[in-house]
Structure formats: structure tokens, C-alpha cells
Design a protein around this nucleic acid. Structure first.
Lengths: 211, 211
DNA sequence: GGTAACCCTTACCCTAACGTAAGGGTTTGA
DNA sequence: TCAAACCCTTACGTTAGGGTAAGGGTTACC
């Protein structure tokens, strides 16, 4: 489970506000379609199949899911290819159909990615889960994973906080420059004495001319 | 300057503890070598050329610099190719030679990367700096850049803190699993009532079975 | 029954930041 | 004067997470 990789920072597209161009965003498919329910292997079978069509669990097709999850259809296809996500069913014409848990799943994937798990890492997690032969043992395993990730996350937070501090220091430093004569060149900066903490120029400033 | 890209999280190799296999880490090159000083264009020329060989500013070659900066030689070559870093001089045999400012520069690059700037972004920054015709105007420009990045960084921090929270919640939740009977299967979890906050299973847990 | 808006599968494309290898000089210490 | 340890340039390889396009069905609605 490869660590030491650059992590996501400004990526995940939150919730994706439904674009105003799609006024008639119908759930695309009426309830009465012929549908082949994909019974999850090894799961309780005849549980609750027919009696749950009260709310908004009308089965989405992939485009709807993508919109709601703030992902692209391609991404969802990819997750499926990697066995991270399975459509709950297929329509007569082989359209993928999803229930609301798919949203939970996709958000879960997104959060894991944001924490720095690669899709390959997530594949491993999913496989481990599916091959589980003992609930508590699997849970403890997952706990360890999360515990480790928590530490990494905290380390990352500390690092980012230092960067935040560096940025603030630089902004402070640069504030002074506004009173400088626009005719001056950068070469004059070395002998500038306008800045408060003369002694140590912030790293993010020093880097500019260290070449 | 492309925003919305996944940011580095656990990447940069800090300071790279000099590996114990390299006991004889000599600065590799005696002082008296024939060296062509690369006079930075447009910089003060006959400033301090001969009278600064007291300390440890003996000119490093690329391997030394790499070690001290915790980067690979390849990375340094790349930075040079992208015009982000220039060797202070070359030896007679065309070896790159660097002073200590190169370290400042590399660390600067690293911090910018960690904040989410791509090398291409940094290229732009460097170009802007080098083409500057007014110190304060350039400084203000850089300030704006940093100000924007500070906001992004803060947003990222908030996000990561939420993830940290999610992780903690999951760890709490999973604590309970240790008292479970190892013979139980995951399918039994749906009817488990051992967890404290029964009502909402944490996202990072719910995701496991939402498939 | 026609058509716009979706969806399906397959498959090649793309970028960033290096990694790695090849073929050949350079330095330095024994 | 020789070898180990560096370094140089050039250039192709790699990985992750999708993007995009092609060719061809499906659905829903009029």
C-alpha cells in the first residue's frame, strides 16, 4: 500500500451544483422498467426486494449518479472496472442502475482518495472486505489501516500548517513593498531596509532570488 | 496557473538523513579547481568573488546538493531544464557546481510544490521575477499569488481536518469490534447493536458495505 | 415511429514529475 | 597509471486517474 506520494489538495469537486442547463433533470427512467436485480453474492437474498419504492430510491442511471456525486461518468465506469462499485441492477437494455447506496460508496471512495489512498489501495481494501471470514478480524484490520492513515493525516496537517505560517510571514513581509518606489529594480531589494524583521527574510521570499 | 489539482500530501523527503553507507561524504572537489563562474546576467558583477572561502561554501557538485536537499540528481537536472535552478558555475570538466543558495532555492521549490504549485506554475513565477522591471510591482504580484494560495491552503486544511475527524469517528466506532465473536461474519454487522452512536454509522464505515 | 438525449463497450490519449538506462567523460586516491 | 566513484547528455519509460472519441444501441416523449 504505497505511501509517500503527493496527496490530493484542491481536487474533489464537492457536490457539483446541478448545472442550470439541465432543467429537465428527470430521474430518467420510470419505475416500471424490466430490471434484473443483481443479487449480491453471499448476501441475504429474499430480504427487502419489492416493498421499498416509497421514497426517492427510484434507481438512477449512471448520468444521474455522476451528477449527484460530482463525478464524471468515466470515473464511475473506472471504479466499476476496478471493482470498487457495482451497479445494483441493469435495465433491459443493459443500462446501469444504481440505488442511493452508490452515492455513499462514491463519497467513501472520494474521501479515501482525499486522504491519500490510491484507487489501487482501495481495491485492496475492498478485496479484503469481500474475502472476510470474520467480521471482527476484518474490522480490526481496517481499524489499523485507518489508524495509520490518521497519523499520516496529522503529519500532513502539521506540514500544511507550517506552510500556512510561511505564507503569512511572506504576506507580512511583502506588505511593506507597497510603499516602495515603482522605479526601483529588484536588485535594489538586497539593500532595502524597510522590512520589519530585517534579519531573516522568509523562506518563500528568499527563494525568489536564490538563483 | 491551474488550480483544482490533487495536492502533495506525504511526498517531500524532508532533509534526507545522509545514508550511513556514505561515510566519506567529502564535498568531492578541492577548492583550487579551475572553475568558470557563471555571472548572473544583470546582477552586480565584481561584488564578492574571491574573499568568501572561509566557511563551508566550497561549491558542491550535484550529488552533494541532491543529498543535502533530499532530492535526486534527476530532479535537480529537471529543475535546471525548466529554468528553475542554475548551477553557480561549472568545473573544467563541465561538472555543475553549486553554492549554498542552491539549497535555499530547492527548498523553496519544494515548499511551493507542497502548496500545490506545479513546476510549470513555478516556471511562470520565475519568469515573472526575472522579467521584472519594477521591484514593488513584482512584489505585489507575488503577494497576490501567495494570498490566493493561502486561501487555498486554508480550505485544504479545513478539508483535511474534517477527514481527520471522520477518521477519529471511525476509529471510535471500530473500537467496539474488538469484543465481537471472531466467528461472526460481516453480514451480521447490520444487526449489531454494540456500537455507541447506533444511529449514524460513520461515512468511512458505511462505505465498506455500500456496494 | 421518429428523434433527442442517454447509455454501452472498446480503446487509444494525456499530463506531471520524475525513473532509468546507455554510452562516454572526469576526479581523485592508491 | 589505474580504478572506483562521480558526472554529462540524450532519450525513452512509468504511473495514476481519468479524458475523449468511435460506432452503435435505448428510452422517453411527441
Amino acid at each position: 500500500m504505497a505511501n509517500n506520494v503527493r496527496l490530493p489538495l484542491f481536487a474533489s469537486a464537492a457536490e457539483a451544483v446541478p448545472s442550470p442547463t439541465a432543467q429537465t433533470v428527470t430521474p430518467s427512467m420510470r419505475e416500471g422498467s424490466h430490471v434484473t436485480e443483481a443479487v449480491a453474492p453471499g448476501q441475504a437474498q429474499g430480504a427487502a426486494t419489492a416493498r421499498d419504492d416509497e421514497r426517492d430510491d427510484a434507481m438512477m442511471q449512471v448520468g444521474d449518479l455522476a451528477r449527484e456525486a460530482g463525478k464524471t461518468v468515466r470515473a464511475i465506469h473506472l471504479y466499476e472496472e476496478l471493482q470498487l462499485l457495482r451497479p445494483a441492477a441493469r435495465s433491459k437494455g443493459r443500462y446501469r442502475l444504481y440505488g442511493r447506496e452508490a452515492l455513499v460508496r462514491i463519497r467513501w471512495i472520494g474521501k479515501l482518495q482525499d486522504m491519500g489512498f490510491s484507487l489501487t489501495d482501495i481495491q485492496t481494501i475492498v478485496r479484503d472486505w469481500e474475502e472476510s471470514s470474520s467480521a471482527p478480524r476484518t474490522m480490526v484490520k481496517m481499524r489499523e489501516l485507518y489508524a495509520k492513515k490518521l497519523e499520516e493525516t496529522q503529519a500532513h496537517l502539521r506540514k500544511m500548517q507550517m506552510l500556512e505560517h510561511d505564507l503569512r510571514a511572506s504576506l507580512d513581509y511583502l506588505d511593506t513593498c507597497e510603499v516602495c518606489d515603482p522605479a526601483r529594480l529588484l536588485t535594489a531589494c538586497t539593500s532595502c531596509d524597510l522590512h520589519d524583521c530585517q534579519s531573516h527574510v522568509p523562506d518563500l521570499i528568499a527563494g525568489f532570488r536564490a538563483n
